[in-house]
């Protein structure tokens, strides 16, 4: 895009700056719209699974429900508890929201549409997702109230536990792809399955890793059945208890942006990203329309996330810790050894 601005008669620095800002807006604005619509989709799916109708009043088929909710929240009064630590209380939702948007910078939407094509893309995502916990922890502490505080304690322990196994799972993918660059990882999946299927997911050594990544992703984004941080039966609303108005909305949007990011990562790391499912020339769309394949995959994984939320009961806290440390960690460590051993034995690195 820098060239486009340069052709309009700008020097390189300005063209680069403008194209970066334009790229950020091109990702962030559609993402916000997508988050609003995906909340509607989420509620429709739960409703269908509970034999209800879901939102169906505001706009045709209730499509404008999220915007109505947004307007309502926007018009509310922002309440800061008098005993709260004001500065941190107000910064916390900003942190959550910003971090949720930052990771999208390295997601490859198609072969050329990627804001920042860096060598350490996957590490960047890991770094950003490890920042996500601060929004929750700061909110819990600054609220100066016991339920948010319990929630913050839980959040920090939970995030650290699952990040360890996510790290090992990503190592397996990186070993196979031979790169931390997300676009290279996508390209490494081209024709991976029998020279036909564009996905790591059907690989027998990587399929168990994908299952664990999906589950760890739910824990990492604090989605059901791992939403211990806002377990309403124990903690009122967890870290969000004291929040109202736009600060609350920032958490809401950030949470869904994170869920979409996890779905995108599932698609990019294991199911071929923007590549079509099969390696057939007809399926490669022209004019950068390959992004549609990625969007379809994201949407499918979001359906899975919703499906799980609608059907699986919440884990108990000790069960959550047990799953993270005693099941996922040893199994993912074993698979790092298995994958690297297999790759060495077959001369993949030669």
């Amino acid at each position: 895009m820098t060239e486009l601005f340069q052709s309009l008669g700008l020097n390189h620095d300005w063209a680069w700056g403008l194209s970066t800002v334009a790229g950020i807006l091109l990702i962030a604005l559609p993402l916000m719209l997508a988050v609003a619509m995906i909340i509607y989709v989420d509620r429709k799916i739960w409703a269908a699974m509970a034999l209800r109708k879901g939102p169906n009043v505001v706009g045709p088929f209730g499509l404008l429900q999220s915007f109505a909710d947004g307007l309502k929240v926007f018009l509310q009064e922002t309440i800061v508890p008098s005993a709260a630590n004001k500065g941190i209380f107000l910064i916390a939702p900003v942190v959550t929201f910003t971090v949720a948007l930052m990771a999208w910078a390295v997601i490859p939407f198609s072969d050329v549409a990627i804001l920042s094509n860096i060598n350490v893309g996957l590490l960047y995502i890991l770094a950003i997702s490890s920042l996500g916990v601060y929004g929750t922890v700061m909110a819990g502490w600054a609220s100066n109230s016991k339920y948010p505080f319990f929630s913050a304690m839980r959040a920090s322990a939970q995030m650290i536990s699952y990040e360890v196994s996510i790290g090992f799972i990503l190592i397996c993918v990186v070993l196979w792809a031979g790169s931390f660059n997300l676009n290279d990882i996508v390209m490494a999946q081209k024709g991976h399955g029998l020279g036909m299927v564009n996905a790591f997911g059907f690989n027998l050594l990587l399929f168990p890793m994908w299952v664990m990544f999906l589950i760890s992703g739910m824990a990492e984004t604090q989605r059901a059945p791992f939403d211990l941080t806002e377990a309403e039966s124990e903690l009122v609303a967890g870290y969000q208890t004291e929040y109202s108005s736009m600060a609350f909305a920032a958490y809401w949007l950030g949470e869904y942006a994170n869920v979409l990011l996890m779905c995108a990562l599932n698609a990019v790391l294991f199911w071929g990203g923007w590549l079509p499912p099969l390696d057939i020339d007809v399926l490669y769309l022209p004019y950068g329309l390959n992004i549609l394949w990625l969007l379809a995959k994201i949407f499918f994984f979001f359906f899975v996330f919703s499906w799980v939320k609608a059907t699986v009961p919440r884990y108990r806290y000790d069960q959550l810790m047990r799953l993270g440390w005693k099941v996922f960690l040893p199994v993912s460590l074993l698979f790092v050894v298995l994958v690297s051993g297999y790759l060495m034995a077959t001369g993949h690195f030669a």
């Binding site: 590490l123 890991l126 770094a127 490890s130 920042l131 916990v133 601060y134 922890v137 502490w141 304690m153 920090s156 322990a157 995030m159 650290i160 990040e163």
Partner: peptide, 14 residues
């Protein structure tokens, strides 16, 4: 970022 911000500082804060 991953080690110090993501793990060590979280434990400090904890």
């Amino acid at each position: 970022v991953i080690v110090y911000v993501g793990a060590v500082a979280v434990l400090f804060l904890f």
